[in-house]
Amino acid sequence: MEGEYRPVVEFPDTPIMMSIASVPAHLPPVRSALESVCKLMGFDESTRGDIVLAVDEALANVIKHAYHGQNDKPIEITFRNVGGGESALKIELRDWGEQVETSNIKSRDLDDVRPGGLGVHIMSRCMNEVSYVHMPDGGTLLTMIKTL
């Protein structure tokens, strides 16, 4: 049985940045890179799954709602260890698409069993912090934090 990886050195606080187009086929390599970062930072298997799922849902929402399915728009992704002595992963997603009113970004009633609308609930359940900022030059900066 594979044991959990334990980092022998602290993961550096320098950022890892990725630029992708708003195409769903780009999501698997982002998930792979994020999984690797989470493992190096010492997150356990279950928490890695939560983080990867939350970021994947956030990217899917950018593609669907900010860019309305257009697949040639930019998304910038930054992963960074911001925990100092104890690891905390900060993930930023920057888009230049339509700004969705932040008060309208909320979980829906889960007792209403129907397809869709689960991404925001998943993000809030899986991460410690989730926040949205409308940027003055257009688009949105989504920040999510997960502590070890």
């Binding site: 799922l53 849902e57 899917a60 069993v113 129907r114 397809p115 869709g116 689960l118």
Partner: peptide, 16 residues
């Protein structure tokens, strides 16, 4: 090996 909410949505539509 992996499923997100869009995959889950496919199964919810199937359930309906």
């Amino acid at each position: 090996s992996y499923m997100d909410s869009s995959g889950v949505a496919s199964l919810v539509k199937l359930l309906s």
